[in-house]
Design a protein around this nucleic acid. Structure first.
Lengths: 172, 172
DNA sequence: CAAGAGGGTTGGAGTTTCCAACTAACCCAA
DNA sequence: TTGGGTTAGTTGGAAACTCCAACCCTCTTG
């Protein structure tokens, strides 16, 4: 797990392999924690109120051994918490931590994309927002309230590298 | 790729394996398209304006064969478009389609989570929103404008199953 | 003509994942 | 007490996926 390389000795044989230098990036770092198969579905289940091992197996379709590994990793990352709810037959259930609850923003945007592009007429699940309406989510800029969308902005910071931005359109 | 099962014949030997019945869900369906390793980083690169094969290899760290496979799959899904920009040395570059641009919402929420939880003091990349401020994203309900967050809502629809919601808290 | 650049393929090794069965610890019912 | 059921995992072996480095082919440039 985790990306391997960092500083490899450039062997350079017939055409300088041109060392990969992955961009520093919170997207990649977050995906290192929750980007493996099943992890986000585990979080989906916890957000649906399913907290037990067998329930998660049943609703996701993950195999039990992999699920065990994912739960351990999410716990180590502070995204879920394992709680003993019975002592004598020792039994546990899983809960989202506050950091885990914040990941639901990712689930919501994934769901919205899938609803729009894969199930335009019949979303399989609808969330009711506290305002009473069916939740239709949108990502905005906290400062101005306008819609946020990457293509329209320009990035700055350590993770931005020079020389590989041939021509900047707003996509399409 | 794609989940296998669907209807398996329940063999039921010593304890009724309790057939997994994965929830119908746009989150899972979207992850089937973009949830494999590297796919979202490819979309990140395109949104940064990097459009060529070698540039994507360099900035993500993906191996070339896997990158080829991901690009083909994203193209088949209508998320990216492959465009010939030179005929004689036949050369291509990749662009986000409108559906691909919409996936940037997912990237933004992943980035925000990583910035908050993994790099609280020094986000590696900052996006400047068109309003001039550094983008600080938030997911809201389009109807009321209030913050959206799954834990606080209740789901309905085909993908919701009875009997596995032991006790519904708002997480934590 | 030799070296790149660009956009891939290919082969083989290494790593993950899947599947189905099995365990252990307890509860209940007959 | 025998038999089952529930819960939370383990385990072993096969299948699938990834990684890496090298190789290919077509231009273009020096």
């Amino acid at each position: 797990m985790g990306r391997p390389g960092s500083v490899r000795t450039a062997t350079k044989l017939h055409g300088m392999p041109k060392e990969a230098q992955p961009r520093e990036c919170s997207i990649a770092d977050t995906l290192d924690l929750v980007g493996e198969r099943w992890s986000l579905l585990v979080i989906r289940e916890l957000s649906h109120g399913v907290r037990r091992f067998d329930g998660i197996v049943l609703n996701t379709g993950a195999s039990r051994d992999i699920l065990t590994a994912r739960l351990r990793k999410l716990e180590a990352a502070g995204i879920i918490r394992r709680e003993r709810y019975s002592d004598h037959p020792v039994r546990f259930e899983y809960h989202l931590t506050p950091a885990g609850v914040e990941l639901c923003d990712v689930l919501i945007t994934l769901m919205r994309w899938g609803d729009r592009h894969l199930h335009p007429d019949d979303p399989p699940v609808r969330w009711q927002h506290s305002c009473g309406e069916v939740l239709d989510a949108m990502v905005i800029c906290r400062h101005c309230g306008g819609e946020a969308r990457v293509g329209a902005h320009s990035p700055t910071g350590r993770g931005v590298k020079a020389g590989n931005t041939p021509h900047m359109e707003t996509a399409e």
